[in-house]
């Protein structure tokens, strides 16, 4: 039994060193990610890439830059869906959009856009509500592969029934099939949806404010951060939002535990949609 405890402690040291190496060599900072998830993902990476230990993985990562995207693939992968939690998108449509209509031009930031599911959901919603043309969307992520796949807008066809059902339940005013065409087991979303989208490499942990937003949607990204990173990211959102701008988080994320809680007020509490308080 003592043996087991000792082995686990070494593993924790190795993980810390691996994350340190990733930061020193490539400037990707996962050091304050929520460790339980990181550990689980790194174990998966270690086993699937065939390394005997995290130290061996670290050596390879330091000396072989080709290893970087593979490790990042494990560290940043997350599984989302279009119109995930349809009631959130319904609330955006019915409660937030009426406010947004009063602006002549809009900026929307999908922070941590991953494969683009949330981005396309919002662009479609904005098109349905007649706001797309006056809106500039920023879709950011730290993972280049994720950005590329978001920009491609291609999804496996077996996910589409769920997307379609979610879209309908979100109060969709059109048919989701209007926006994609299917071929070879995939669906490809219409490139006109990307007309007003800027895809960009941006880290919520190390990068700065880049524009003034009326809406930031960042769902199920902060759950991967520890409290200090969460506070950093929420501070960035606070500074990026225009007065009375909106922030949407994931269904089980909360500002309650953050030092920036006071800068926001509940707009729709049950959907985790917050509004920036006037300065």
């Amino acid at each position: 039994m003592k043996e087991t405890v000792a082995i686990e402690k070494i593993e924790d040291i190795e993980i810390r060193l691996l994350l340190e190496a990733l930061y020193s060599r490539y400037h990707y900072d996962f050091r304050n990610y929520a460790m339980a998830s990181i550990k689980r993902r790194l174990k998966q990476g270690r086993d699937q890439l065939g390394f005997a230990s995290f130290s061996a993985l670290q050596e390879s990562l330091l000396h072989d830059a080709a290893m970087l995207p593979r490790i990042l693939g494990y560290l940043t992968v997350q599984v989302s869906e279009m119109f995930r939690d349809p009631t959130y998108f319904r609330a955006i449509r019915e409660k937030v959009v009426p406010h947004l209509r009063t602006y002549p031009s809009l900026k929307v930031w999908v922070a941590g856009c991953s494969g683009g599911e949330e981005l396309y959901s919002l662009v479609i919603l904005f098109r349905e509500e007649g706001l797309e043309e006056r809106t500039l969307f920023y879709a950011t992520d730290i993972n280049q592969d994720a950005l590329r796949s978001a920009e491609a807008g291609v999804f496996a066809i077996d996910r589409v029934p769920l997307f379609t059902e979610n879209h309908r339940n979100s109060g969709g005013k059109s048919s989701l099939s209007d926006y994609y065409h299917a071929a070879y087991g995939k669906v490809s979303f219409d490139k006109t949806l990307r007309r007003n989208v800027v895809f960009s490499d941006h880290s919520l942990v190390t990068d700065a404010v880049f524009a003034e937003m009326q809406l930031i949607s960042c769902r199920n990204v902060l759950i991967y951060f520890d409290r200090s990173f969460q506070d950093r990211a929420l501070g960035l959102f606070k500074d990026s939002l225009s007065r009375s701008g909106f922030l949407g988080l994931g269904a089980k994320e909360s500002l309650r535990f953050s030092q920036h809680a006071g800068a926001f007020k509940d707009f729709i509490r049950e959907e985790k949609i917050y509004q920036r308080r006037g300065a």
Partner: peptide, 21 residues
């Protein structure tokens, strides 16, 4: 909660994840 993994962090807080099923 439905549709999230639940994990225990080292500092004994509860963390959620959207990693694959």
């Amino acid at each position: 909660p439905p549709d999230y993994h639940l994990l225990i962090e080292v500092d004994k807080s509860l963390a959620l994840s959207s990693d694959e099923a």
